[in-house]
Simulated assay, not measured.
Amino acid sequence: MAILENHQKKGFGEALILHCEKDCISKKVLLIWFNARTQAVGFYEKLAYTKKGNPFEIENIGEHLVMFKKLI
């Protein structure tokens, strides 16, 4: 997911994450994981996501880390 820069820090990203988590929990999903841009890691950590492994480069996009959160 991504939020356009001029719409960041307005709560849209957090609302989207929380909605997705609620939907996953209702479907008994145990874990969410994704590749997060390194500059977004702090945002995800505030929502209780954990970093895993070392940073890696995604061509034409930039540096990322795997992040995850156990839901159930």
Rank of each mutant, 00 (worst) to 15 (best):
M1S: 12
A2S: 13
A2H: 15
A2R: 08
A2C: 11
I3V: 15
I3T: 08
L4A: 15
E5H: 12
E5C: 10
H7M: 15
H7I: 11
H7S: 15
Q8V: 10
Q8P: 07
K9S: 15
K9M: 13
K10E: 09
K10C: 01
G11R: 02
G11Q: 07
G11K: 05
G11W: 00
F12T: 08
G13Y: 03
G13F: 03
G13M: 06
E14L: 00
E14G: 09
A15R: 12
A15L: 06
A15F: 15
L16A: 11
L16N: 05
I17K: 02
I17Q: 02
I17A: 04
I17W: 02
L18H: 09
L18E: 15
L18F: 08
H19A: 14
H19W: 07
C20E: 10
C20M: 14
C20H: 08
E21K: 03
E21C: 05
D23P: 00
D23I: 11
C24N: 07
C24E: 01
C24S: 15
I25C: 02
I25D: 03
I25G: 11
K27P: 03
K28E: 15
V29N: 02
V29H: 05
L30D: 14
L30S: 14
L30E: 13
L31Q: 15
L31Y: 03
I32G: 00
I32R: 00
I32Q: 00
W33P: 01
F34V: 00
N35K: 11
N35Y: 10
N35I: 02
A36F: 03
R37E: 11
T38A: 10
T38M: 08
A40L: 02
A40I: 01
A40G: 06
V41G: 06
Y44E: 00
Y44W: 13
Y44R: 00
E45L: 09
E45P: 06
K46W: 04
L47A: 08
L47P: 07
L47N: 14
L47Y: 04
L47I: 07
A48L: 15
Y49S: 04
T50K: 15
T50E: 14
K51I: 10
K52W: 04
G53S: 03
G53W: 06
N54A: 07
N54C: 06
N54V: 09
P55W: 03
F56D: 04
F56I: 10
E57S: 05
E57P: 02
I58G: 00
I58R: 11
I58W: 04
E59C: 09
N60C: 11
I61P: 08
I61L: 12
E63H: 01
E63N: 12
E63I: 10
H64Q: 14
H64S: 02
L65V: 13
V66T: 12
V66P: 00
M67R: 05
M67H: 08
F68A: 10
F68D: 02
F68Y: 14
K69A: 01
K69Q: 06
K70I: 11
K70S: 12
K70L: 11
K70W: 14
